[in-house]
């Protein structure tokens, strides 16, 4: 049981994720350079936060064409689990594995704080141990996290019960307070908050643990 963390030029949360998965949770973890394509030994893949390719053009727009992401589409189609955190979420929307787009925060600020979130769906394994409506606390750190999609897409997300977490006090202007969504199948989760920064009491919270543990749930 091994997970992989994709590393792009400009990723900067890759080691934080490794510290959380391997150091805090004991999950065997290896890094995946963006030019590699072999995911055959992996049970799950994390696309970490950061500024892949300097966020040039749009966040995630250039990363989307990395060789590893072609393999990732096959990986997802065959049921593999993928977690996109922050820039990873932006990349998953650019890639089309999740709908919508992440745009500039309403008030332009880069927001870096520990915030309350409401678990909106426990349909998938990512939030299995939590109750719908529960509050969890995770850090956010982004300038472009305002979720946007058209009305039809929003309706589909709601009908499919795919809005996983919402902001309690919407910090960035996200549509419908959306902080994280899953695909219909439930094996892909994209979220702006950073679960890897909430896996140790010393850092002020443990609410990220169950999300990362779900990488290896059956």
């Amino acid at each position: 049981m091994t997970i992989g963390i994709v590393v792009f030029p400009g990723s900067n949360c890759d080691r934080d994720v490794q510290w959380a998965t391997e150091g805090c949770l004991g999950i065997p973890t290896r890094f995946l350079w963006h030019e590699s394509t072999d995911l055959s030994d992996l049970d799950a893949v994390v696309i970490p936060g950061g500024f892949s390719y300097g966020d040039y053009l749009r966040c995630g727009a250039i990363a989307r064409f990395a060789p590893i992401l072609s393999s990732l589409i096959d990986f997802v189609n065959s049921g593999g689990k993928v977690l996109g955190i922050c820039n990873g979420f932006q990349i998953l929307t650019e890639l089309g594995l999740l709908p919508g787009a992440l745009t500039r925060n309403q008030k332009l600020h880069f927001i870096c704080e520990n915030i309350p979130l409401i678990v909106s769906s426990t349909r998938t394994e990512w939030f299995e141990g939590v109750k719908c409506g529960d509050n969890i606390y995770l850090p956010i750190a982004h300038g472009e996290g305002r979720y946007q999609c058209n009305k039809d897409t929003l309706k589909k997300l709601q009908d499919d019960d795919s809005i996983a977490i919402r902001y309690k006090n919407n910090p960035n202007g996200s549509l419908n307070d959306i902080a994280g969504i899953t695909n219909k199948k439930g094996n892909v989760l994209g979220m702006m908050p950073h679960p890897e920064r909430a896996c140790d009491d010393v850092l002020g919270g443990l609410d990220g643990r169950s999300i990362l543990q779900a990488l290896l749930a059956k």
Partner: peptide, 13 residues
């Protein structure tokens, strides 16, 4: 250009 329905905070600022 951003679609007319999408808020442009940089433009507003």
């Amino acid at each position: 250009s951003l679609r007319p329905s999408v808020l442009d905070p940089a433009g507003e600022a």
